[in-house]
Write a protein that binds this DNA or RNA. Structure first.
Lengths: 114, 114
DNA sequence: ATTTAATACCTAAGACTTGGAGGTATATAG
DNA sequence: CTATATACCTCCAAGTCTTAGGTATTAAAT
């Protein structure tokens, strides 16, 4: 299909969402991110694990995130947090996405938000 | 890179933009679309031809657009317009994108908690 | 007791979109 | 006579995502 359906993402938006969530939360683990997005969007948006984990690993490889593994209730959790570079980059990428979204709205003539 | 830069598009948004422009304009040709988007966004958003023409051809193949070629000032223009199916599909895809954008904003606008 | 659901991580294959680079051709302005 | 604007096109590489699969533990339900 051509257009994104309810659950699919727009290319490039996932990593920015991750960065945005981590700006507010200090540290989060993968599964927590999927649940948080589901909660925030009343179940309308789903982050698939096949997209999430590679995205997290890439952000880590780029030096924007660091990890710290903890065992909680017998299960391993891999916590991600923003590095110093990550904080700077997050701001930039969020601004870029916001700018793109504004331009997209100009074309679509939807009501601008953000 | 991970994040979209100023000029790049997000996957899935181009075809919806095309459909949206054609909802208002009855018929447009490719080059006109690139200029219209540039105008609407004050030059901030550029539709590359390498993305546009394949997208137009695909929408045509899906039966959402029909074409009509005219020679204007010695140059060939290929006008695209929405088919009946195209009108219906356009409404649906625009609504889907709008819905996605709202959810995206819910995640990105997140206020700090805890 | 045993199965299912929820939690929690991961990868691989394939589809799909996009950007960039390249190509063709005409009209107009300098 | 050369550059710019107009107007179309295709191919390749890069990148992201979905789908589908895998492993493993805990808690709840049967």
């Amino acid at each position: 299909m051509n257009a994104p359906n309810n659950s699919s993402l727009l290319k490039g938006s996932l990593s920015v969402m991750i960065l945005r969530l981590l700006e507010d939360r200090e540290k989060m683990y993968g599964y927590e991110i999927t649940q948080k997005v589901k909660d925030l969007t009343a179940g309308e948006m789903t982050i698939t694990e096949g997209a999430l984990y590679p995205a997290l690993h890439k952000l880590e490889a780029e030096g924007l995130l660091t990890t710290e593994t903890q065992i909680v209730d017998g299960r391993a959790r891999k916590y991600y947090s923003l590095t110093k570079t990550g904080h700077t980059e997050a701001a930039g990428r969020i601004a870029e996405l916001a700018s793109f979204l504004e331009n997209l709205n100009l074309v679509l003539k939807l009501k601008p938000s953000i």
